[in-house]
Design a binder for these strands. Sequence first.
DNA 1: ACCGGAGCCTGTTAGC
DNA 2: TGCTAACAGGCTCCGG
Length: 271
Amino acid sequence: MPELPEVETVVRGLRDSLEGRTITGLRTYWPRHIAAPADTAELKHRLLGSQILSLGRRGKYLLFQLDSPDTLIMHLKMSGNLGVFDAADPLHRHDRTVFELDNGQELRFEDMRKFGKVYLVANTETVLGKLGPEPLEDSFTLASFRQRFAGRSRVIKPLLLDQTFVAGVGNIYADEALHQAGIHPQRRADTLTKGEVARLHAAIRAVLQTGIDKQGATLTTYRQPDGRLGGMQNEFAIYDRGGEPCFRCGQPVVKIVVGGRGTHYCPGCQK
DNA sequence: ACCGGAGCCTGTTAGC
DNA sequence: TGCTAACAGGCTCCGG
């Protein structure tokens, strides 16, 4: 599920409920969710009593800045959702980790497929250190994007999914960006013209921003923190549209596998 | 550097 | 209708 726009929507939706709150308790129903520290007793010792100062995002990671030397980091992976509930509300079947708060509410990490991760680290670089640039920041210029292509011969779609190349792009938005830029997903990075790189740069930013504006894409499990569905799934130009006509040229959208991932493209307008 | 495959999990869907 | 296999928004590890 969650790619950059979904994670950004979750962060924005949680801010009002969490900023200023103190974490008073922790319950784990799937201990392997906790990626660091290895010892849950140590996690509780370092985390409980900490106040959440602010929420942020880096790539697909959520960052909880605490009034302690540590930062709480979470990754939703394929099926994770976060929501704030009253402690008396019944748990959902797939709730894995619960953070108890000082106002009688709880932050609940629900995760059907159990791939999600929770980290408490003193140095955020141990988790985030290898991430590529944030595509919606001003610093993600066309010139900097061009430089990242130097010496890269990989197929373009798997390269876009590489979080060390650009942070936050996942399978949906990679397909959408390549379609918007008119680039075939199996092109090699070193065959893109200057103009194509420029179109791709603009397209990555445009599709991610649209995703945020539409509050993310709900295929199955994704929800906003208040439970509402996203709206981006109604805006897809190419993703999940196999067999349907391309909105731009009318040719049927084709679905293939690239780098092991389902990939949608239009043979009429992606060359 | 890069690729493919397996693994981590559960649930839904497509196909027979 | 019922079973099975394939597939799903992410990412890591391993061998080649």
